[in-house]
């Protein structure tokens, strides 16, 4: 049995590409006016007003280029997200992702383990409690990004939505925060994959996963027990 269904694997990588382009082009759009204040006003809650994002982190080359990418890729991101959510709902994978009772207690145990307060890896199913929280938050923040994005794309035609978010200026701010959260979750995810469970990378490509190399089996925390212990029963020791 594969660890991840082929639909999950494809939507994962489509999402990775679409999200990268959306963030890059979004930052390029932001740089056309790297502030939130309405003209003639000040904005309370962004300390870097009028300081642009480094161009090397942006995509699209110029404002129109970035906008064209952003407004094309948004459909890929949204439709891909719908396929993913529809699939995990119908196929049952949502059970591995939706927080269960005691999720915060279990997550706290994971934190204690990572901080070496606790010696043994907490028992888990497919994902540990921190992963569950992260993988559940990701689509939620994605929905937040789409809703706030719609609100600033059409602040007049969808004015009830924009109004609900506090108006155009605030909707734009929430859209920026959605981006920050998505980037933070993504970097956390990538960091944990490489420092705790790099053996899960093939499982998101071919679907194959060796349970005997799982973080729980290795008792692995970031950078610790990264390599499997060098004992092989089937090979004579020197």
């Amino acid at each position: 049995m594969k660890r991840h269904h082929v639909v999950v694997r494809i939507t994962h990588w489509v999402n990775a590409i679409a999200l990268t382009i959306m963030v890059g082009s979004g930052l390029r759009i932001f740089n056309a006016y790297p502030a939130f204040a309405r003209r003639g006003e000040t904005f309370c809650c962004y300390p870097f007003e009028r300081r642009p994002i480094p161009a090397s982190l942006t995509f699209g080359g110029w404002l129109a280029g970035a906008r064209n990418w952003h407004f094309a890729m948004m459909w890929v991101l949204a439709l891909n997200g719908l396929v993913y959510l529809g699939f995990i709902y119908l196929h049952g994978e949502w059970r591995d992702l939706v927080p269960r009772r005691g999720i915060f207690r279990d997550a706290w145990e994971m934190v204690r383990f990572y901080l070496t307060v606790r010696k043994d890896h907490p028992r888990q199913g497919k994902h540990n409690a921190l992963q569950r929280l992260a993988y559940f938050s990701m689509p939620m923040v994605g929905i937040m990004a789409i809703v706030t994005g719609l609100a600033i794309w059409k602040p007049v035609e969808l004015s009830p939505l924009t109004g609900l978010l506090g108006g155009y200026v605030w909707a734009r701010y929430w859209h920026f925060w959605a981006m920050l959260l998505l980037v933070a979750l993504t970097f956390g995810h990538i960091f944990m994959v490489f420092t705790v469970d790099p053996y899960s990378i093939p499982s998101m490509i071919t679907g194959k996963y060796r349970e005997d190399l799982s973080p729980e089996a290795r008792n692995a925390r970031p950078f610790v027990h990264l390599l499997p212990t060098n004992t092989r029963d089937d090979v004579p020791q020197p």
Binding site: S214, A217, R218, P228, T229, N230, R232, D234
Partner: peptide, 15 residues
């Protein structure tokens, strides 16, 4: 995996 209950495996079999 070849192991019936992976959660019980502490030491990996292959490297």
């Amino acid at each position: 995996s070849r192991n019936p209950d992976p959660s019980l495996v502490i030491r990996p079999a292959r490297s």
